[in-house]
């Protein structure tokens, strides 16, 4: 009893101390994020990346808009058809052949932006000798890593939300067709997907920045992974698929479908593929399935767009996979960083 009372006497004080500690920590975390964000905004590397992305996206938009406009101007009926066939989403997916479409650009440049944001997060601090100074301050060690990630993600979010809304605004202004509610939601989902995708590359960059002491090494390693998935992975899977899908080995329809599934799943190990699959589904509602369909399945089906909820259902595994990959990278870098000894150089 006496003990309990003695304990009670302490509790408010402990609480108070904990609260003030939490407050202090939050303030320190905010300060870290603010500093990182400012650094990003003022670094040439990021400014160049941003300029590149904005320019190419605006360029691809322009070509998309002009080709859509030509089609609409052809006759009055086209306008009505356009409204019912998600024309607005075409802004992101079509081009007149001179420039790649918006989503191609994003899937190409997004990873580069992610890598550029993350590849020297930790090792440059270490090389400059600021990491040991940071560590001497009363902040938990993981704050440094978390703050870097948060700041980069924040920049990423701001950029893509701004870009997406800008595209919509331009589309409305030039085409004169407002997006429907569903189109708007689809575009929002697409933006979230872009952010998740870039977050993966960002985390890969951070992972390499923890692992490799030299920023150049980590940048090259991250770019190597990017090129591998962007170019070579597809080739390698195609190579394998030749033997897997060899008609001589296929015995039945079921076998053919399962073999096709294996190839598809191999492809899906690549984050690029996951991203492409999900963006196509989101921005082209007419995509009904991401796997093979048999003739039996398609006969009698009325060709029509999927509702948003169904499209989302279709890409749910892809999105979860992307986020899982992001988390895995982050966890590994977190563990590595927490175990590393902070020495100057």
């Amino acid at each position: 009893m006496v003990k309990l009372q003695a304990l009670k006497k302490w509790i408010p004080e402990i609480n108070l101390e904990m609260r003030s500690n939490n407050n202090d920590n939050l303030q320190a975390f905010k300060a870290l994020v603010r500093k990182e964000f400012t650094d990003y905004m003022t670094s040439w590397r990021i400014i160049i990346m941003l300029a590149l992305i904005v320019l190419t996206c605006v360029g691809s938009l322009y070509t998309a808009i002009t080709s859509i406009q030509d089609a609409i101007d052809a006759n009055e009926e086209a306008k009505e058809i356009a409204k019912s066939s998600f024309l607005f989403l075409k802004l992101f997916t079509i081009s007149d052949g001179t420039l790649p479409s918006f989503i191609t650009f994003v899937s190409f440049l997004g990873p580069l932006l992610g890598i550029a944001l993350g590849f020297d997060a930790i090792n440059s601090e270490r090389n400059k000798g600021t990491l040991s100074r940071l560590m001497a301050q009363p902040i938990p060690r993981d704050y440094v890593l978390n703050a870097k990630f948060t700041a980069a993600l924040l920049l990423n979010t701001v950029l893509f939300v701004a870009l997406g809304f800008m595209v919509m605004a331009l589309g409305i202004l030039i085409l004169g067709i407002p997006p429907t509610g569903e189109e708007f939601l689809r575009i929002l989902c697409f933006l979230v997907l872009c952010i998740a995708y870039i977050a993966f590359w960002l985390n890969l960059g951070i992972l390499f920045s923890v692992r490799f002491k030299q920023p150049a090494t980590s940048a090259l390693a991250a770019i190597a992974v990017w090129i591998f998935f962007n170019i070579f992975y597809q080739m390698i899977v195609e190579l394998f698929s030749k033997s897997i899908l060899n008609p001589e080995n296929i015995t039945s329809t079921v076998d053919a479908i399962s073999r096709q599934g294996v190839v598809l799943n191999l492809m899906r190990l690549s984050p690029n593929y996951l991203f492409t699959e999900s963006t196509t589904t989101l921005l082209s509602p007419s995509v009904r399935s991401l796997g093979p369909l048999t003739v039996e399945q398609t006969t009698g089906a009325i060709a029509g767009p999927l509702p948003l909820s169904q499209s989302l259902m279709l890409i749910w595994p892809q999105l979860t996979g992307l986020i899982a990959a992001t988390l895995i990278c982050f966890t590994i870098s977190y563990l590595l960083f927490m175990r590393q000894e902070i020495r100057s150089k």
Partner: peptide
């Protein structure tokens, strides 16, 4: 704590 090879944010 003043580390032996300390650095500052140069910008």
């Amino acid at each position: 704590y003043l580390p032996d090879d300390l650095g500052f944010y140069e910008q």
